[in-house]
Structure formats: structure tokens, C-alpha cells
Design a protein around this nucleic acid. Structure first.
Lengths: 195, 195
DNA sequence: TCTCTGTTTAGTCAAATGTCTAAGTCACTT
DNA sequence: AAGTGACTTAGACATTTGACTAAACAGAGA
């Protein structure tokens, strides 16, 4: 295979994966067909089969690429030891209720896909475990410093699940109470920070 | 229309709605077709069109019937003023992590369906609002009695979203931390109860 | 008993879909 | 310049799907 050809192929493959993500946002996983994703990507519909073997397999690749980026983003958000915890928390909450609803929609659609494809569930569970690990490490020090009564693993689960709940509600256009909740947490953290 | 015919028709309609719910659990909303739901219900596939006009409309009826039951269940869970709050809470949490995963799967599939059908979102939002109202009323007294610092609407949002997050994680086979979180909350409530 | 009306059945139809293939195209090598 | 091999294209093919329909059917009332 020539270099030029390799580049062209990678570009086309990437275009198909990008197109699939856009269609996840626009119509959901159930509405994606080989012809539609090819048209969205501006490539011939035969390439879906040529590159990925099947429509199903293309979505598997979308999932893998997305979870890789997601894991990276989660790590970047909380990992840097230079940045104070409160700042990380605020950054994470800004993302959570920011206007990047599309990103969350992709993630939800991929999760919904996994509900009925057992072979994809491991990948979702892996990302969940990774996120849990990142949060557990990031919250270990604040957990002690702020004197939070609840055990660390319970706290991490609480943070993860209420985040997922907010994402789920936002996907349905519901935002009631989110601002109040996040504002109170922020105030609570800030007050303890100053002491 | 005769009475006997009415009964037979109601039975067949109910059978189709029940079959659709079972298929939501088994294969998700994307895998439901007129022929498949008819076979599952044991009726002729033409009846889907005759009764409901379209496959889409059948799912709308499934959503309406389900949300009606869900609202009723939520009210029954928290409404009775005779039952002490702690007991209600424990009952609700037992449901949440009970083995009735199928029920949650139906609810999640219907929500996922609504992500791409704007006409269904009002119904989801309605149920969400109803649940919020029920919880707000049920938590008003405990909120004050337990001396919870967070404002009531933030507390209600926290409870709702972490519940939804737990449901979402459980749909993917993830239960890490749930037991620890609920156990701690239970202990916290129980300790304040005794005082 | 016979008709009439609403229900049920089996089957038709066009459109859409995933998969696959044969022919065409292009860059690179010899 | 011709050949080579991989890539790309357009189209074919069998299935499946939602929607629809004509005919068979059943039960209530005359």
C-alpha cells in the first residue's frame, strides 16, 4: 500500500467515524444505515463494507475511538497535581452543564446501543471503572481535608451517579434544580476552602 | 361494537402493549417491528395497523401506559402520610437496587426513544416533573427535621439524579459502590432518627 | 334464520437495507 | 510505457420492513 493511499484511506475511515458520530447526535443509533453514514461522510456506501466489514462493526469502532478520547479527557480533567481540587471540580461541572450537549448525546447513544449488544458492555464498564479510579484518586485528599463523613467509595459513587443523572435529564431537555444543586456544592466547597 | 368484541379487542390491544414491553427488555426499541410484536403477542400482524395506525403510534401508547403506571407507583411510594419517612426511603431504595431490572430497562428504552422523537419528550418531562413534585413534598419535613444544609430543591435534584445514575449504571451491569452509598445514607438517616 | 356491521386474516406492494461483486481507476514499479 | 496491485465506484441481489387491502368471519339484532 502506498503512503498516499494510506493517508487517503485513513481520511475516509475518519470521515465515516465522524459522520457516524454526527448521525448519533442527529438521529440516534437506530437511524444509522450504511448509505446514510456514507452520504454524510461524502464517500461511496460500498466503503463501509470494504473498510469495516459491516455497519455493526463501524459502530464498534466509533465506540472504541470515543471511549479512548473520553478516558483521556477524564484523566486530563482531574490528573494534574498542580491544579487545586476546587478548580478541577469547577471545570468538570462547567463541562457537565455546558452547552456541549452533542458530546453527551453521543455517549448516551453508545450506552443505549450497548444495552442490547452484550459484546459492547465490557467497553462501557471499562470506561466506568477508569472514571471511578480517576475520581477516587482525585477525591482522596479533599475527602479527608474537608472532613466528609461518607466513606470515599460511597462519595465517588454519589458523584458519578448524580453526574450521569444530570446528563440523562439534560438529554431530555430537563435542567430543573441542576443549577441550585451545583451552586450549593460550590458554595460548600468554597467556604471550607477559605478556612 | 358489541361488549364481547370490546373485551376481545381490549385483550388483543393489551397483549400487543405487553408484548412491546417485553421486546423493549429483550431487544430494545430499535429491534421492534410490526411482525415481531404481533408474533410475541400471538395476534395477526395486520392488527398493529388496524388498532394503532402504525408501529410508531403503538410505542406512543406503550409510553403513555407505562408513564401512567410509573407516576402512580411513585405517588404510592411516598404519598401515604401514615408511613414514616425512613420506611418510605428504604422501600424506594429496595426497589432501586432490587432485581426488577426489566422494569428499569423498559423505562430507559422509552427515554432513549424520546431522545430522537421530539413529540415524546413532553411526556418524559411530565413524569420527571411529577416525580420532582412528589419528592419535594415528601422531603420537605425531613429536610427540616434532619437539619440538612442544602436547599430543598437542590436536595431533591441530588436524589433524583443519583437515582437515575444508579439505574443507568445497573443497565450496564455496573453496581460498584451502590451498596456502600445506600448503606451510608441509611445509617446517617437511622442515626438521626433515634435522637 | 338472515342480514349487517365491525373484526380478523392472509397476502400484496413499494421502499429501504446489508451485503457483496464486477468493472473501472489510480499511483507506483519495472 | 506497460504492467501490477490495491483502492474505489456503481450497481445487483435477497431480505426485511411498514403500510395497506380484499376477502373471510363472527356475533347482534330484525
Amino acid at each position: 500500500m502506498t503512503d498516499a493511499a494510506t493517508v487517503a484511506r485513513s481520511a475516509a475511515e475518519g470521515a465515516l467515524l465522524d459522520a457516524a458520530e454526527r448521525l448519533l447526535v442527529q438521529v440516534g443509533h437506530a437511524g444509522i444505515t450504511t448509505r446514510r453514514v456514507a452520504e454524510e461522510a461524502g464517500v461511496n456506501h460500498g466503503l463501509v463494507h470494504y473498510y469495516f466489514g459491516s455497519m455493526e462493526n463501524l459502530l464498534v469502532h466509533v465506540l472504541e475511538r470515543f471511549t479512548e478520547r473520553l478516558t483521556e479527557r477524564q484523566r486530563a480533567m482531574y490528573a494534574d497535581p498542580e491544579i487545586p481540587f476546587l478548580e478541577k471540580w469547577r471545570q468538570a461541572m462547567r463541562y457537565l452543564v455546558g452547552d456541549d450537549v452533542e458530546y453527551e448525546k453521543i455517549w448516551l447513544e453508545l450506552q443505549a446501543l450497548s444495552w442490547n449488544r452484550p459484546e459492547l458492555r465490557d467497553e462501557i464498564a471499562r470506561v466506568n471503572g477508569e472514571w471511578r479510579a480517576v475520581l477516587t484518586e482525585a477525591f482522596a485528599a479533599p475527602h479527608e481535608r474537608y472532613g466528609i463523613e461518607m466513606p470515599l467509595d460511597a462519595l465517588v459513587s454519589l458523584v458519578m451517579t448524580f453526574n450521569e443523572g444530570i446528563i440523562l435529564e439534560r438529554a431530555q431537555g430537563i435542567t430543573t434544580g441542576h443549577g441550585e444543586l451545583l451552586a450549593w456544592i460550590d458554595g460548600w466547597l468554597a467556604a471550607r476552602e477559605k478556612r
